[in-house]
C-alpha cells in the first residue's frame, strides 16, 4: 500500500462529517434515566444486608455445631479421663479387708520371707505407650461400687486385723469360693497355712531384675485350679512409696477378692458373661502410672507369664491347695523352686 494512499484514507476517515446532535436528544436521553436508578443503591444495600445476614447465620450455625461437638466430646472424654479415675480412687470409701487377705496377712506376720532368691521369672511384656494412652482415655472405673478398691491402707492396720479377723474369715467366705474342689486357693482361708500368701507370692513373683525406676506391671490369667476364675496380678516394682490402687468394673466382674497384697497384689475374680474384648475388667494405679486390663487381655494358663504362674501357684500353695497339685503345675511350668517348695510342704 502506498504511503500517500494510506494517509489519504486516514484523513478521509478522520475528517468524516460530524453533524451536531439534534436538539432535545440530551433531554430524551435524560428522560430515559431510570427512576429506579435511585432505588438500585438501596436495593443493593438491602441485598447486601440480606447476604451478610445469611452468611452470619451460616457461620453462627457452624460455630454452634462445632462448639456442641467439642463440648460433647469434652464431656465424654472427661467422664473417662484420668482425673475421673483419680476422683474415683480418692472418693472411694475405705475398703473393708477381705477375710482371706486378713488371714494371709496374719500368716505373713508369723512366717518371714525366706532369704533364698527367687527363680528368674520370664520377662513380662509391658503395654506400649500408645496402648497406655488409649487405656487412660477409655478407662472405666466402677464408680458405683461402694467398695471398689483394694485397700492399700489396710497394711497399716495389720496389727489390728489380727487373729479375730482370721477366725471370722471362714464364716464370711462365699460357699462357691470355699468349695475345696472348685477353689483350692480359697480353701486356704479356712485351712491352717504354714506360710503366708504374701510372703510366698512375693518370694516367687518378684521381678526378674531390680528396676531403678518404679514400674507397674499388670496381668490377668485363668486361675491355676479353677478355669471359671481368673487371677489378676498387679506388681509394683522398683523404688516406690506405696501400694497400687485397683478398681474393678462391676459391669464385667461379678465377684472378686484379694489373695495377696505385698508388693505383688493378687485378686481372684469371677467374670460376668463376656461382652467385647475391649471391655475394661480392672484399672490399676500407682502414682502417675496407670494400667488397664481388658477382657481381651485375659490369658489362658499356658499363655500366662512365668511371673504370673509363680505368683498364682504360690498363692494357691499358701491358701492350702494340695501341694502335689501345685508341684505338678509348677513342674509343668518349669518352676522348679516352687515345685520343690510345694513338695517340701507336702512332706
Amino acid at each position: 500500500m502506498r504511503p500517500n494512499r494510506k494517509a489519504d484514507l486516514q484523513r478521509k476517515l478522520s475528517l468524516a462529517p460530524v453533524p451536531k446532535p439534534p436538539a432535545g436528544l440530551a433531554d430524551r436521553i435524560k428522560r430515559d434515566i431510570p427512576k429506579t436508578l435511585l432505588m438500585d443503591a438501596e436495593k443493593e444495600r438491602v441485598r447486601l444486608r440480606q447476604s451478610v445476614a445469611f452468611n452470619i447465620r451460616v457461620a453462627a450455625s457452624i460455630i454452634l455445631l462445632v462448639s456442641s461437638l467439642y463440648l460433647a466430646l469434652n464431656l465424654v472424654s472427661r467422664k473417662f479421663s484420668p482425673e475421673k479415675l483419680d476422683a474415683a480412687f480418692s472418693s472411694a470409701p475405705a475398703p473393708v479387708p477381705q477375710p482371706q487377705l486378713a488371714a494371709a496377712r496374719e500368716l505373713d506376720r508369723v512366717a518371714p520371707t525366706p532369704a533364698t532368691p527367687p527363680p528368674p521369672p520370664a520377662a513380662v511384656a509391658k503395654p506400649s505407650r500408645a496402648r497406655l494412652d488409649d487405656d487412660r482415655r477409655q478407662a472405666i472405673v466402677a464408680e458405683a461400687r461402694p467398695e471398689p478398691l483394694v485397700a492399700p491402707e489396710v497394711a497399716e492396720d495389720k496389727e489390728e486385723a489380727g487373729a479375730g479377723l482370721k477366725e471370722s474369715a471362714t464364716e464370711s467366705i462365699p460357699a462357691s469360693v470355699a468349695a475345696p474342689a472348685a477353689a483350692p486357693m480359697a480353701k486356704a482361708a479356712a485351712a491352717p497355712a504354714a506360710q503366708s500368701a504374701d510372703a510366698l507370692v512375693e518370694r516367687f513373683a518378684r521381678a526378674n531384675a531390680a528396676s531403678a525406676m518404679p514400674s507397674l506391671d499388670v496381668e490377668a490369667a485363668v486361675a491355676p485350679f479353677d478355669d471359671a476364675k481368673y487371677i489378676v496380678r498387679v506388681s509394683l516394682d522398683g523404688p516406690h512409696g506405696g501400694k497400687p490402687d485397683v478398681a474393678f468394673n462391676d459391669a464385667a466382674v461379678a465377684a472378686w477378692h484379694g489373695i495377696a497384697s505385698d508388693g505383688t497384689s493378687l485378686y481372684e475374680i469371677t467374670l460376668r458373661p463376656g461382652r467385647t474384648g475391649n471391655e475394661v475388667i480392672a484399672a490399676a494405679r500407682a502414682g502417675a502410672m496407670e494400667r488397664v486390663i481388658r477382657r481381651g487381655d485375659l490369658r489362658a494358663w499356658d499363655d500366662a507369664s512365668r511371673r504370673m504362674k509363680s505368683a498364682s501357684l504360690a498363692a494357691a500353695l499358701a491358701a492350702g491347695a494340695p501341694p502335689q497339685d501345685v508341684a505338678a503345675k509348677a513342674r509343668a511350668a518349669g518352676l522348679d523352686d516352687l515345685a520343690a517348695a510345694a513338695e517340701a510342704r507336702r512332706r
Binding site: 446532535p21 436528544l25 436521553i29 435524560k30 434515566i33 436508578l37 435511585l38 432505588m39 438500585d40 443503591a41
Partner: peptide, 20 residues
C-alpha cells in the same frame, strides 16, 4: 451507583455528542 440522578445527567451531557 449511590443513586445520584444529577451525576447520571452529567455523564449524559459529557458523552452523548460523541456517542451520537
Amino acid at each position: 451507583r449511590s443513586g445520584d440522578r444529577a451525576a447520571a445527567e452529567e455523564i449524559v451531557e459529557r458523552t452523548y455528542s460523541a456517542v451520537y
